Amino acid sequence: MSVGLETANILVLGKGDNLHQQVLASFPLCDVTEEDLTQNPLFSKLLASLTQHVDKTGLTVPLKTELDKAEQRLQSQKRQWLRSESLHRGLQEMIQEHCVRKHNTEVPPDQNMFYETMERCLRVTQCVRHLDPSSTTSQDQPLILGLTPQQVTQLMPSEKNVQRMRQALPRQLEKHLKDKCLSLLSYYQPEWENESEALKTNKLSHLSTLLDKEKKRTELLKEICRENTVLLQRQTQLYFSELIKCIQLLQTLILDHKLKIQTDLDRKKLVYFEGKCELVLQKIKTEMVEVQLDTYSPDTVSAHRKIREKLECELKACKAEKQAVELKLSSFEILGKAFEALAEEYSRLRQEIDMKNWALKELTQYDEK
Score class of each variant (00 low, 15 high):
residue 189 Q to P: 00
residue 168 A to L: 14
residue 157 P to L: 14
residue 173 L to Q: 05
residue 139 Q to M: 05
residue 180 K to W: 00
residue 150 Q to M: 06
residue 139 Q to P: 00
residue 192 W to Q: 04
residue 155 L to D: 13
residue 148 T to W: 01
residue 133 P to I: 05
residue 146 G to H: 03
residue 149 P to Q: 04
residue 191 E to T: 14
residue 185 L to M: 07
residue 148 T to L: 05
residue 173 L to I: 04
residue 169 L to Y: 14
residue 195 E to N: 08
residue 161 N to Y: 14
residue 178 K to W: 02
residue 128 V to K: 11
residue 189 Q to I: 11
residue 132 D to E: 14
residue 131 L to R: 09
residue 187 Y to P: 00
residue 185 L to K: 03
residue 167 Q to H: 15
residue 186 S to T: 11
residue 145 L to F: 14
residue 129 R to A: 11
residue 175 K to N: 05
residue 155 L to A: 14
residue 183 S to P: 00
residue 134 S to Y: 08
residue 128 V to G: 01
residue 166 R to V: 04
residue 138 S to K: 10
residue 191 E to Q: 15
residue 187 Y to V: 06
residue 180 K to P: 00
residue 192 W to A: 07
residue 173 L to M: 12
residue 181 C to T: 01
residue 169 L to D: 02
residue 173 L to G: 02
residue 160 K to T: 15
residue 157 P to E: 15
residue 185 L to N: 02
residue 161 N to G: 08
residue 169 L to I: 11
residue 159 E to D: 08
residue 178 K to I: 02
residue 171 R to P: 00
residue 161 N to S: 13
residue 155 L to Q: 13
residue 171 R to S: 12
residue 132 D to K: 11
residue 141 Q to D: 13
residue 181 C to K: 01
residue 165 M to K: 07
residue 167 Q to P: 05
residue 178 K to N: 03
residue 156 M to D: 08
residue 151 Q to R: 10
residue 174 E to C: 07
residue 142 P to H: 03
residue 147 L to V: 07
residue 163 Q to G: 09
residue 186 S to P: 00
residue 149 P to H: 06
residue 186 S to N: 11
residue 163 Q to I: 05
residue 162 V to A: 05
residue 139 Q to R: 08
residue 156 M to T: 07
residue 133 P to H: 09
residue 179 D to Q: 03
residue 180 K to S: 00
residue 146 G to Y: 04
residue 174 E to Y: 07
residue 145 L to S: 12
residue 147 L to K: 09
residue 193 E to H: 12
residue 185 L to W: 03
residue 159 E to N: 09
residue 178 K to L: 02
residue 192 W to K: 04
residue 193 E to F: 07
residue 133 P to S: 13
residue 174 E to N: 10
residue 157 P to T: 14
residue 189 Q to A: 12
residue 154 Q to E: 15
residue 176 H to I: 00
residue 197 E to P: 08
residue 144 I to K: 12
residue 162 V to T: 06
residue 132 D to I: 06
residue 178 K to F: 00
residue 140 D to R: 10
residue 165 M to F: 09
residue 148 T to N: 04
residue 162 V to K: 08
residue 191 E to Y: 13
residue 147 L to R: 09
residue 142 P to T: 02
residue 185 L to D: 01
residue 190 P to H: 02
residue 181 C to M: 07
residue 149 P to C: 03
residue 184 L to H: 03
residue 157 P to I: 11
residue 150 Q to F: 01
residue 167 Q to G: 14
residue 172 Q to F: 05
residue 142 P to R: 04
residue 189 Q to N: 11
residue 156 M to S: 10
residue 141 Q to E: 14
residue 171 R to L: 12
residue 136 T to A: 15
residue 183 S to L: 05
residue 186 S to A: 13
residue 158 S to M: 14
residue 159 E to R: 13
residue 165 M to C: 15
residue 169 L to H: 08
residue 158 S to R: 12
residue 137 T to S: 11
residue 156 M to A: 13
residue 142 P to Q: 06
residue 148 T to I: 03
residue 187 Y to M: 10
residue 195 E to A: 08
residue 164 R to C: 12
residue 185 L to C: 04
residue 183 S to E: 09
residue 128 V to C: 13
residue 131 L to M: 10
residue 139 Q to V: 07
residue 153 T to P: 04
residue 181 C to G: 01
residue 171 R to C: 08
residue 133 P to L: 07
residue 192 W to D: 10
